[in-house]
């Protein structure tokens, strides 16, 4: 392990997964128009853990949705794996959302009347995975978030923290390459929050999943390789990819101490 920590497992400069140029997002029209993002330029590299921080209403969620190709920019371009988003075929775009990305939304977005299992298997169902395999993968993901006994529960009957973990299970069930998490600890008490954080960084370290975490929690932000600070729709600070090595070591220490205290 120490060996792998000394040597970063990726070469950040070599492998950009998302590249954003001159990104602007305007909500509404004419007199109602509101510019949520202004001229954003950004490159995210494979395996990075990136924190997008900023005050409420600064445009973090908007940026994340654009990066995840869930919404269309008003101006500017987004390239994923070197392909510009507007040039992607509908089929390819759906495949990206379904197989390569994992999402944890700020407001959860679950189907409240469906069971935990049904919620977690949703991405696999969309992918057309067979029932049996779907259940196996979902149970594995639920085990990872520590919710194995809640499989049959109705999603609505869970506590806030449990819902958040179900959403994480859903986000990881398809083994994504990039995980987008909008305020993943926002609804959690600190103990569960820590669990979730450990889980996310485990994925980042062990499975090389690129993490993009939106948060206003400075402590969580510090655990990431890189922090991008947004204010009024503009990037006001980007620590860049240079801090990777140091941060990596830091996370390793943090998680180790957490393991120790447990």
């Amino acid at each position: 392990m120490p060996n792998s920590l000394a040597e970063p497992w990726y070469n950040s400069k070599m492998n950009p997964v998302i590249e954003v140029k001159n990104l602007t997002k305007v909500y509404g029209k004419r007199s109602n128009a509101f510019t949520a993002l202004k001229n954003i330029n950004l490159t995210i590299n494979a395996g990075e853990s990136v924190a997008i921080v900023g005050k409420s209403g600064s445009g973090k969620s908007t940026l994340m949705h654009l990066l995840a190709l869930l919404d269309k920019p008003t101006k500017g371009t987004i390239e994923v794996d070197g392909v510009e988003s507007t040039k992607l075929k509908a089929r390819k775009l759906n495949q990206l959302r379904n197989r390569s990305f994992g999402f944890v939304f700020q407001q959860f977005f679950m189907n409240p009347n469906d069971s935990v299992l049904q919620n977690v298997t949703l991405p696999l169902k969309i992918a057309g995975t067979r029932r049996k395999e779907r259940h196996e993968l979902a149970e594995k993901a639920l085990k990872t978030v520590g919710l194995s006994e809640r499989v049959k529960f109705k999603a609505n009957d869970l506590s806030g923290g449990q819902k958040q973990r179900v959403c994480i299970a859903r986000a990881i069930v398809n083994n994504p390459k990039i995980l987008f998490a909008d305020e993943p600890t926002g609804n959690l008490d600190s103990a569960t929050g820590d669990k979730v954080i450990k889980l996310l960084f485990d994925l980042n370290r062990k499975k090389h999943v690129t993490l993009i975490i939106v948060t206003h929690d400075e402590d969580l932000a510090k655990l990431c390789d890189r922090q991008i600070r947004i204010s009024d729709g503009k990037i006001v600070e980007d620590t860049g990819t240079k801090a990777v090595k140091a941060k990596t070591t830091k996370i390793a220490k943090e998680t180790k101490t957490k393991k120790g205290t447990k």
Binding site: L70, A90, R91, N94, Q95, L96, R97, N98, R99, F103, F109, M110, N111, L122, P123, I126, A127
Partner: peptide, 16 residues
């Protein structure tokens, strides 16, 4: 509507 939004966010095609 939200459910459709979720399905589409998770990669369901418009056709489906």
């Amino acid at each position: 509507t939200r459910e459709i939004g979720l399905d589409k966010a998770l990669g369901m095609s418009s056709g489906r």
